[in-house]
Design a protein around this nucleic acid. Structure first.
Lengths: 416, 416
DNA sequence: GCGGTTACTCCGGCTCGCGGAGTAAGTAGG
DNA sequence: CCTACTTACTCCGCGAGCCGGAGTAACCGC
């Protein structure tokens, strides 16, 4: 069946997709809007929209809303939206020691969400069980049958192998060695499962919904216990040749520093990771100090904590300066738990960048906090499921009435 | 005229282009080859080829060549090639102190070439005059009228602003401030002119013709008097938000080192640039030592020169290690004049990368010498002209017989 | 109620790519 | 030489797709 590129069918599919993306990006759009935004002809848009309505992927908003009336009168447009009832996405984020689960509709609007501290790295299977139960609980609260879900996105804090999507092995994280994330979750929920690295997915989320909206070249820095980053270039995650791009935490910044879990010496993570921050305050505050303690103290204005956070920012800035010189991104978005520390951290980064970048460049790079906080990664998991779900593209997937329920198979993934 | 994306005309243009690119990438191809490589149908390819033949963009090779006969007999294929007589490209590279000019046919095969040492940075206008005369001389030798040329590519060793394509100002190079490269050359040759950064264009050349063929993610490192790099991602030059991506020479590697011409302290260029290498040997060999002296001594096995080159390699490796961790490229191609030093340099780079990259990654990055030597940049200029020339795409540009002569206007450029 | 304006749909025309059938041009073997 | 057989390429009719024009629908202001 003509899925050959360059064929007419592929042309129609391309145009279909452009219509859907237009509706989705604007939330709601009339046929006329779509004509203006895509450059397609009225006729073509009408025909494509008719198809999509028949397949229940779009719906006409007939509610008594104040319709967007045109300035000189004229027939009001009928707004089209994605059919929220026709499905939804599940997203799960496994951090090093927390799990977050969210349910979203087809337009990626989050309907329910839950977060809990779990020692993920030590007990991977247990954390899977918790996330599974949480997902079912959320669906029940929403009165949504699981069969309506069309995809699951999973964000893991380990490198994901390109293409096959399995985790890189040996994984730098002990507990994750040889865990078949996609397979395991497919067995649990019978959904298409898409796996991605959490920093990369955080970047995707900030790009689609957060501080990176409209910016096509930027770097998302995730500072939590681990340190990672996601690089968005031309609106796409840069995955690298082996899927391990973005490992900011393992850029060497202190050649004579501590040995890192990756085997090298002086990685950024040993200087600016959560443990390093806690360690920095352990003499002043005792050996059981945690990252959360540091963040609380910082918020309270504790001088020592502020100093530690600022120093961490400087180290991050140093690691980023080489990257900025080479990549010339428009924006750096700082997220993760440590990212919530805000200005003290950002100032450390900005000061170092200003010092280490060449004159024209140091003015052009903006450093801003993430807009999504610690929710970025789970939102990215949902966005991943959304982007990888071909439901939109499959004609006849929903023969007018039937809901696009669980479609087994098609377990594909997203690399890091 | 329907150039709208999503239209049928655009579909045909896309397929046209794919046919042309197939022929070009293979040098020569039969219609059947094109069918196999593009996935289009026999009929479609035949029709497109017929168009292209009528427009004189392709020609059938009827020479008595040993035709590529099929194993089991069968009618032999008629080979198609780009029509070499229908035009050509000019390329010029302005290094810091040398100029290289080349003439190529439509398939980017260089027909003639000339290089000369010129103090470009001090006397930009003079170097333009030299390059202009050299280009006319080469064309005369080839008995090609200048009117056959369809485009000129210019490689300059300064950042090029995105879009507008003018040089970034203030330029880090004094002589280049406020020089309207594209305008000046358009006035001289009345051709479409395309301007790019030399390191970026060297990367393009190594990707199309050299050590990076078939590799879609790699970094080209240009080590000469200046130090630069070009980053190829997904087969395209990464230009960055302000067009200054790839400035490897201004990554800080020695925080307490010399002040660089860019205003910062300890840039890689102050450690591994041509002047730094010459300076390193100036005590042993006298204050007038040049980069060429160092390279000669290295080739002759001089221990001191080897040491200097290897140290430079280590510094380059250090600057690259952060980038490799973040970008995970498949390959690093080392070119430029210092790049011709070969193994001593490469070993310095490899040793440092092996030390500073995390275990899985340090095995996956290959470091190889450029295959094009110091010709890479001028070849890249030709490739730029080739890529940016829309002649192929303009239907009816050559109404069967007329040659696509100098088409004024369309002065577009390529950023860095 | 009436022109003006905008949104959307139906119809005919045109282009495009495709597969089937037919032609061209070789090899292998008798 | 003549007959399979194989491969390369072309002609023809079909169906798919897009577009512009004409027609209908729904709102405004006067």
């Amino acid at each position: 069946m003509g899925n050959a590129p360059g064929s007419l069918e592929s042309l129609r599919r391309t145009n279909r997709l452009r219509v859907l993306q237009t509706v989705q990006s604007r939330g709601a759009a009339s046929r006329a809007d779509i004509v203006r935004l895509t450059g397609l002809s009225r006729t073509t848009v009408s025909s494509l929209v008719a198809d999509l309505l028949a397949e229940d992927l779009l719906v006409e908003r007939t509610d008594q809303q104040p319709l967007p009336v045109s300035p000189n009168g004229g027939r009001p447009a009928t707004l089209l939206t994605l059919n929220p009832g026709s499905g939804g996405y599940l997203g799960v984020h496994f951090g090093h020691d927390s799990v977050r689960v969210a349910v979203a509709d087809l337009s990626c609007t989050v309907l329910a969400e839950e977060q809990r501290d779990v020692a993920v790295d030590e007990h991977v299977r247990d954390s899977f069980g918790y996330a599974h139960r949480a997902a079912l609980r959320l669906l029940e609260q929403l009165d949504l049958p699981a069969s309506r879900m069309v995809g699951l996105g999973v964000a893991v804090s380990a490198p994901v192998r390109h293409g096959s999507g399995t985790l890189a092995s040996p994984s730098p994280l002990k507990g994750w060695d040889d865990v078949d994330v996609a397979g395991e979750w497919h067995r649990r929920l019978h959904l298409p499962v898409h796996v991605g690295n959490d920093a990369n997915l955080g970047a995707v989320a900030e790009w689609m919904f957060g501080a990176g909206r409209g910016v096509d070249d930027f770097v998302y820095v995730m500072l939590s216990d681990g340190v990672g980053s996601g690089i968005i270039l031309k609106g796409q995650v840069h995955e690298g040749a082996t899927g391990t791009a973005g490992e900011l935490g393992h850029v060497v910044v202190a050649p004579d520093g501590y040995v890192c879990r990756c085997g090298n010496r002086g990685c950024l993570e040993t200087v600016a990771g959560g443990r390093a921050l806690a360690l920095a305050l352990s003499q002043a505050r005792g050996p059981d100090t945690t990252l959360d303690d540091v963040l609380r103290l910082t918020a309270a204005g504790d001088v020592g904590a502020l100093r530690a956070v600022e120093d961490a920012g400087r180290a991050v800035g140093h690691a980023l300066s080489g990257l900025c010189t080479m990549l010339d991104p428009r924006l750096i978005v700082v997220g993760g738990r440590t990212g919530t520390a805000g200005e003290p951290l950002l100032e450390g980064i900005r000061a170092t960048l200003a010092r280490e970048l060449s004159p024209p460049l140091n003015r052009s790079v903006r450093v801003v906090p993430g807009a999504l906080g610690t929710r970025a990664e789970v939102l990215g998991a949902i966005a991943l499921a959304h982007r990888e779900t071909p439901a939109h593209v499959l004609p006849g997937a929903t023969p007018a009435g039937a809901l696009p329920g669980a479609v087994p198979g098609a377990v594909r993934e997203h690399a890091r």
